[in-house]
Design a protein around this nucleic acid. Structure first.
Length: 414
RNA sequence: GCCCGGAUGGGGUAGCGGCUAUCCUCUGGGACUGUGGAUCCCAGGAGGCGGGUUCAAAUCCCGCUCCGGGCCCCA
């Protein structure tokens, strides 16, 4: 019996890997242009770290295991908690604000389906230390620019969990249950909950509020429903608009995790079926949960795999030069290859002991641009024969000029 | 955890109780001892696993595993 790949995991072949690297490159470039610096945390943590902050939802689907010393560990289901843990443990004295970005794999034991896997990648940022609307602005702007740079067709929705929390205050203990129902858009469940609690008047308000989706006028409507300071959201929305960031106000966004405190946002894309959410984030307070000082932060995570599926651009493939390798002249072939590689040319030498015909055939199969033939006559004459595999043309080039010659030919056309 | 649909060489398939399991592609070699993509020849390679029914199972039945899609949840 062959050993299969575990369920919900994937192998990435070169073609796909090149595309993923291209997406990664673009995201990194943008994060760094905003002054964010990469951080990395362990693949597994004490399961306590995730249990403490995120309620049953995520905990049920965690990969938890015991190590040989009976420590209870978990493969990370997300990256925000580890990063805030790292911040509390070793960065709390660094100058504020801190700008971190990360790219890493996460694990959740869920039923796999389109654009959902048990091992998946998140690319995200955390801006730690500011609770200004400007922090929300920066982070949302960055998320927007990232998705834009991948030429993805998406919609940005911005909400605020504060006003829902305010409204739900009378529910006391039950309010987080209500938040979850709102997040699920479970109207029936909500009605049931409210009638059980005998709060029909509140029910109407909540339902009206969560249905508010649209432009700025939505804020005015919300003001009539709930007593709340909308200044933060208004300033944020205005500034985003003036910077050309198209968005909709959506007070129905509740987000599954209950550590969010203020502005929350999500991005939805077309073409992924049920998994249309490609980015989610907002402002939160986690530091004190992990034993640090109360510190506001805001961040988001992009569903890297989902975004890769939507990315239609091409990765830039490096051209390949094949060095034809003859028996007895292996030294010459490998020497030439080394010279080309030093000049940043990808050079491939036959290692199958094949004849010339087969080597050219292979060169064709791997889509090489050029073949360099150095046989006995070439070595004697100090001239290498360069064959263009696309056109079939051949040229004899002086051995010492070969690197510059090929570099010139392979220069990317701009 | 629930619902639907699947699983035949590396990839794509045909057969749907009975010959040595079909065809395409692929991989390696050769025709062709130094010039690729074409052609021809040779070689390689398969019914997910376990059980049942039957004289006989890839084919029918059951269970499991895995894959795809949906619910839930999320990225």
């Amino acid at each position: 019996m062959r050993i299969e790949r575990p369920r919900g995991t994937r192998d990435f072949l070169p073609e796909e890997m090149e595309k993923r690297r291209e997406v990664e490159r673009r995201l990194r470039k943008l994060a760094e242009s905003f002054g964010y610096r990469e951080v990395s945390t362990p693949t597994f943590e004490h399961s306590e770290l995730f249990k403490r902050k995120s309620g049953e939802g995520i905990v049920e689907e965690m990969y938890v295991f015991e190590d040989k010393s009976k420590r209870e560990l978990a493969l990370r289901p997300e990256l925000t908690a580890p990063i805030i843990r790292m911040f509390v443990n070793e960065c709390s004295r660094m100058p504020r604000p801190l700008r971190f970005y990360y790219f890493g794999n996460c694990f959740r034991y869920e039923r796999p389906q389109k654009a959902r896997y048990r091992e998946f990648w998140q690319f995200g940022v955390e801006l730690i230390g500011s609770e200004s609307y400007l922090a929300d602005l920066e982070v949302i702007l960055l998320a927007y620019k990232m998705l834009e740079s991948l030429e993805i067709d998406f919609e940005l929705h911005i909400g605020h969990v504060g006003l829902l929390r305010n409204l739900l205050k009378p529910l006391g203990e039950e309010s987080s249950k209500a938040m979850r129902l709102i997040d699920k858009k479970d109207e029936e469940g909500l009605r049931k909950l409210f009638s059980e609690l005998g709060m029909r008047d509140l029910e109407e308000k909540v339902l009206r509020l969560t249905e508010l989706v649209g432009g700025k006028e939505v804020i005015e409507e919300a003001k009539e429903i709930v007593d709340f300071d909308f200044n933060h959201v208004e300033k944020l929305s205005d500034l985003l608009e003036s910077l050309g960031v198209k968005h909709r106000i959506n007070f129905g966004i509740a987000r599954g995790l209950d550590y969010y405190t203020g502005v929350v946002f999500e991005c939805y894309a077309k073409g992924l079926g049920a998994q249309k959410q490609i980015c989610g984030g907002g402002s939160y307070e986690l530091a004190q949960i992990f034993g640090g000082e109360r510190t506001p932060a805001t961040g988001f995570a992009i569903g890297f795999d989902r975004v890769c599926e939507l990315f239609k651009g091409d990765s830039v493939k490096k051209p390949v030069v094949v060095i034809v390798n003859f028996p007895g002249l292996e030294k010459n072939a490998f020497e030439l290859a080394m010279r080309l590689r030093e000049s940043d040319i990808t050079a491939v030498v036959d290692v199958m002991g094949r004849n010339l015909k087969k080597q050219l055939s292979y060169a064709n199969d791997i889509n090489a641009e050029y073949a360099v033939i150095i046989g006995e006559s070439e070595v004697k004459g100090g001239v290498f024969r360069v064959k263009n595999l696309k056109t079939g043309e051949q040229l004899d080039v002086e051995a010492e000029n070969i690197t510059t010659f090929l570099s010139e030919l392979l220069k990317p056309k701009t």
